[in-house]
Amino acid sequence: MSDYKIPGDEKLQAAKQKFSELSQIDELLSSSEKLSSVSPSALFAYANGAENETVEKALGENLALRRIYRDMLEKNAVYYVPEAMAASSAKKSDDILSREGKGCRIRMEPSRAEPNQVYVIVELSGNEKVTPTTLVVCDVEANCSRFPLPKIRDGVAQIIADRDADLVRLLSDPKTEAFIR
């Protein structure tokens, strides 16, 4: 006699969604010899924060895989901040960009103390229950870089970075998009 508990509608729907995503990825990956070295579950785990050098290397070499990865990021992001050019409120001054997404704004503020440093300020106004921990910024070729977010205080995560740091360089490029999860 088994003790299996049938999941509720909500969990069932979520399971179906994941299955669908994984099947889709599996189909895409199996269509290419090069992509098959990365399993769908490994890519999915990586998109959710897991470390994996093999996946990282494969992503660096293959545009198609990066696009799949980027789609996974978008589906799993708590907040999405599109390219700055597409956001009406985007503004640029002194090479410091401010951009907005739904329930979220990312802006950079120069440091008065250290002119070669800037504050990256992630402001979250949405009512999402999940507390984001990572900021992922992707360029037009879906080259994505992950940056850990510090503890969010009063809806704000604040980072200090050098002006030539990858994070600042990517966010200063209006063509990049950001995912917060």
């Binding site: 503020e109 008065r112 504050y119 300020i121 604040q158 970075a161």
Partner: peptide, 14 residues
């Protein structure tokens, strides 16, 4: 500073 949160930084770095 104009950033919203006060911070403590080590050796003038980030």
């Amino acid at each position: 500073e104009y950033a919203p949160h006060s911070m403590v930084c080590l050796k003038r770095g980030s």
